[in-house]
Design a protein around this nucleic acid. Structure first.
Lengths: 225, 225
DNA sequence: CAAATAGTGTCTATAAGACATTATTGG
DNA sequence: CCAATAATGTCTTATAGACACTATTTG
């Protein structure tokens, strides 16, 4: 039995300038050396306990970033997707606030709006599309998008994040009702967003008990108004 | 770089005697020879175009079954899950009506109620639990459960399938309203379920246009009544 | 015609959306 | 005081569930 090439890839997503962007890494080795692609690499059976740890290691090595949210997306495989031979890519996706990527200051890393993507090596375009579908789907019924926000954020900011992801307006009253029902946010006492010529918005943060176990919920968030 | 063991496993589910059951295969090779486990095997880079085809091939070889519905579940990986070494299991799940399994007549295959499962080789128990979670989750908002029915079925039968999967009663009026809205079923003209001392139930089937592209939908099916 | 369950009409309860009003800031 | 938008109250609409009633069969 021939050997299978076993790799991991990470779709690192963030929100910048009101658009959803994906981090691309300039490949320093063949194949596709010099091309922009998803940060990815071989599973190291000596170093990695499992594929998720491999993804976290690869993400850190290629971008300097440690993402609190890293979830398996799907596995892409086959004879045709990699010129080196029959390969498996166990793919993950991660969400971080844009400042985490900017602070990394990697010249071999760039952010591209997901609408601007043209062609990419391997089947990375397909992987990214799968990640977008997953994130958008999960955003309709979960608190996943808070991973795109800084530690403190206002409800209007968070609503804009949801609206950008889902690409449709959300009813303000319903949104705030839903966030209240989820019960995962708490106001930061005394912290308000000042400087604008209007009533200041209250800052919120994720309650400590949910800080590392977010995601799911009961019913959904729906567009409207 | 050491090599990774690359396998596929299939969680084949069916409904028998009102309980959700999983097909187990008696392993004919080490490790765990003679133990009941998920049907699974190596990816064959010569024969398989991709992992899904490998899963379909393995399912057919070990059970004689070809499942119309076969979807990737998740990939399980790591150093500890297989005594042979660092391994990857790209796992799939399939749903078939029980008669498909019975007609296969394999003595090395058995059905076990998902509540009766004790311990299994590898991390197969974990894989099955992930499949159950996925199927139950999808059943709340999709037509997935029709894959557990025969080609023709009555609405009361289909409702019972949903109720068994979700393990809770469903409001009859809401259920039928939802099935009507989904628009994927059509009555089989003239076909009714006779023999019982009550009004006969109309037989339905999946419309031809949806026969090989089922699954998703708009809003959900909720318990009640 | 009695028992059983399929199938449907309709009222009630709950959740989501529309809209309006008040609150609080900077200039 | 005006413009801007945060925050909230409340009415309307849409969806889900409860319940009852009719339909059709077997024995």
């Amino acid at each position: 039995m021939e050997s299978v090439i076993c790799t991991v890839d990470v779709v690192l997503l963030t929100l910048r300038a009101g658009s959803l962007q994906v981090a691309l890494y300039m490949r320093d080795k063949a194949p596709f050396q010099g091309a922009w692609a998803l940060p990815g690499g071989y599973v190291h059976v000596e170093a990695d306990e499992d594929a998720e740890q491999a993804a976290a290691r690869v993400l850190h090595e290629k971008t300097g970033i440690v993402s609190p949210y890293l979830e398996q997306l799907a596995t892409f495989s086959g004879r045709a997707r990699d010129p080196r031979g029959w390969s498996v890519s166990i793919s993950y996706y991660a969400l971080v606030p844009v400042k985490v990527i900017e602070q990394a200051e990697r010249s071999d890393l760039k952010l591209v709006g997901v609408e601007q993507l043209k062609s990419l090596p391997f089947d990375h375009l397909q992987i990214i599309h799968a990640a977008l579908e997953r994130v958008r789907s999960k955003s309709t019924y979960s608190s996943l998008p808070v991973y795109l926000c800084n530690e403190q954020f206002t409800l209007p900011q968070l609503q804009t994040v949801y609206e950008t992801l889902l690409n449709e307006p959300i009813n303000k009253v319903s949104f705030r009702r839903k966030m209240d029902e989820l019960g995962i946010l708490e106001p930061v006492i005394g912290a308000v967003e000042t400087g604008k010529a209007n009533r200041p918005a209250q800052y919120y943060r994720v309650k400590a008990q949910f800080r590392h176990t977010l995601s799911q919920s009961g019913r959904g968030l729906n567009p409207g108004s």
